[in-house]
Design a binder for these strands. Structure first.
Length: 559
RNA sequence: GCCCCCGUAGCUCAGUGGAACAGAGCACUGGACUUCUAAUCCAAUGGUCGCAGGUUCGAGUCCUGCCGGGGGUGCCA
């Protein structure tokens, strides 16, 4: 991408200047090549001269001059300028920018991609909600973050597996089964209380009703384990359907019981014991986390003989590493932030390097309805499901998932956001996602219009790109050429919100172009300009569609 | 008590590999549709970047303390 090319040219310039004796010999320090906020400062800018001042024992301005004098010629650079107190500013070549339309059109499905992953295996684990109830708004954030991060990693050359892990062997699921059994018996006329800490949501009533319809009263004496499995199955079907509506598709669903049955948990416990990282106290088995740099030791097997959630999590992460993933991203809600250091410590105790594991903790979403905070609890059956939200956000032409995904993708994971339902529904007609989608639809309208005016694609494909040079055209082109850097940065920083902000900027530059430049003209003298602009517009459509596609948001042809 | 995240415009939020005048959307005000879709555009308004110190040639961005909000600190997950 352009930024990397400039970095390399700066290094070449420094070497040439040193060879010519215009700069003393010194190793280049860390420096940045960034996009200046002020357009007068060019398209890219570097602080290398100021960073080098101390090492070179020269004034920044003098260093900058030497670099500029020895700057190698490059087709894509239009101007290299010095600015006080020592910035070197680069401006892209207008002619080169115009020609990039061809490069974009040649790679409609891959423009902006790069290859830091080089085909290596990466895994993104997200959602991972236990099947005790429907998915809620908090899960939606994890889902959208994870899915988009996975897409970004794919775009940067990783072989990505999207994975959902869930606990189906512990106390929670036993309680779920008991709660379902109570609901079932309730429908048969037997009244029993929901167990302590059990699940009170209505959804178990629906599952119970299905059981009655299917089996009548024949399950009255059946044990809890049957109900547990049945609840898991039904709720998981619901979760999968919700994920499908959100446009999220997992490659692997991995569950805790498989870890037990395959002996992986026992093996991990054994290994921890023999290596001395586990010890017995008060009838329980503890992980010696204090030897691994943590503040306190943790129970991994309760005195009841049942492992705590940490043990399967440790075995699961070991399994991830053994499966050959070279980059692992875990996405959890803020309520899990205290648990993952223990889990990683356990993995390290088993002799594995955990440096490839990145943990993203997203903060909580406060849901507001009618000016009131909606407190949610799966156990109490008080929550607003993703399905409900999607229903409310859907409009005749645009699926609710677009609004939900885009909205969630405008915030950084660290921000504890407020999601005002009334506002989201009321303002959905002014949601920024429509602004971006409208840009795409507008382009499609232009292309349709062009076809009816005698400019089908195979005609304008031969348009002369050198005719592009209007300020609005160049501004749009510049923004289009930013996509590779946006994808690379968003992927490297695991910060998908950069995509939504980029998409808004791109749409904005397109709308401004639309205002300033008539694309389709039937005036004979403007025929060639029309053909060139149609190529530009088609390329802009490709870039817009790519940004939307990475976010999992649809790119409508009309609105 | 201790740990993590946050505190930027009336509201919701970007911006933290330090850098050249602090951004967007919404809301509010005034303009632009015989012209490829006005779900658009233009203009105006709006900020002591929580507070106080410190590091630096340069701090919204790094460090320390304080204040405020959220999350955690289980032999729950």
């Amino acid at each position: 991408m352009i930024r990397d090319d400039i970095i390399s040219l700066i290094q070449q310039a420094a070497h040439k200047a040193q060879a010519a004796g215009d700069l003393p010999m010194f190793g280049l320090p860390d420096f940045v090549v960034e996009r200046p906020k002020n357009p007068e400062h060019g398209d890219y800018s570097t602080n290398v001269a100021m960073q080098s001042a101390r090492l070179a024992k020269m004034a920044p301005v003098k260093i900058a001059e030497a670099l500029i004098n020895h700057f190698p010629p490059a087709q894509f650079i239009g101007k290299v300028e010095l600015a006080h107190p020592g910035f070197v500013n680069f401006t892209l070549s207008d002619a080169w920018l115009a020609q990039q339309v061809a490069a974009i059109a040649a790679a409609p499905d891959s423009f902006g991609n790069s290859d830091t992953g080089q085909g290596r295996k990466a895994q993104v684990e997200f959602v991972s909600a236990n099947p005790t109830g429907p998915l809620t708004i908090g899960h939606a954030w994890g889902a959208v973050l994870g899915d988009t991060i996975a897409s970004l990693l794919t775009a940067t050359g990783w072989d990505v597996t999207r994975e959902y892990y869930f606990n189906n062997g512990g106390r929670q699921m036993r309680l779920l089964g008991e709660s379902l059994r109570v609901r079932y018996l309730e429908l048969l006329g037997q009244s029993n209380p929901i167990p302590q800490d059990g699940y009170q949501g209505d959804y178990l009533r629906w599952v119970a009703a299905a059981l009655v319809a299917e089996h009548g009263d024949s399950l009255a004496e059946v044990n809890n384990d049957y109900f547990r499995k049945r609840a898991e199955l039904s709720i998981f079907a619901n979760i999968r359907a919700t994920l499908a509506r959100l446009g999220v598709d997992f490659d692997v669903y991995y569950n805790e019981l498989d870890l037990y049955e395959s002996g992986k948990i026992n093996a991990a416990v054994q290994a921890l014991s023999t290596s001395g990282y586990a010890y017995q106290k008060d009838g329980a088995t503890w992980l010696r986390a204090t030897d691994l740099g943590l503040k306190q030791d943790r129970v991994i097997i309760k005195s009841s003989g049942e492992p705590t959630y940490r043990m399967p999590d440790i075995a699961y992460h070991v399994d991830k590493l053994r499966r050959g993933f070279e980059y692992i991203v875990d996405i959890f809600g803020a309520d899990h932030h205290a648990t993952w250091p223990d889990v990683l410590a356990g993995v390290r105790a088993l002799g594995y390097d955990t440096s490839a594991i990145q943990v993203i903790i997203h903060q909580f979403i406060t849901l507001m309805r009618e000016g009131q905070e909606v407190k949610m609890s799966t156990r109490r059956g008080e929550f607003v499901t993703i399905d409900t939200l999607l229903d409310e956000l859907t409009t005749p032409s645009i699926p609710g998932r677009d609004v939900m995904r885009f909205t969630l993708l405008t915030r950084s994971a660290d921000s504890s956001m407020i999601f005002d339902l009334d506002l989201a529904v009321k303002e959905s007609s002014e949601n920024p996602v429509y602004y971006v989608q409208y840009g795409h639809a507008r382009i499609c309208a232009i292309l349709r219009k062009a076809a009816t005016e005698g400019f089908p694609p195979d005609d304008y494909a031969g348009g002369d790109l050198s005719l592009l040079g209007h300020p609005a055209e160049l501004r749009l082109l510049r923004k289009m050429m930013e996509l590779p850097e946006v994808i690379a940065d968003a992927a490297a920083q695991l910060a998908p919100q950069q995509l939504s902000h980029y998409a808004q900027g791109l749409a904005s530059d397109f709308h401004a172009f639309y205002r300033d430049c008539q694309v389709v003209s039937t005036v004979p003298a403007e025929r060639e300009l029309t053909r060139a602009r149609l190529r530009l517009v088609e390329a802009a459509r490709i870039v817009l569609a790519r940004a939307l596609g990475l976010m999992g948001v649809t790119a409508p042809e009309q609105m």
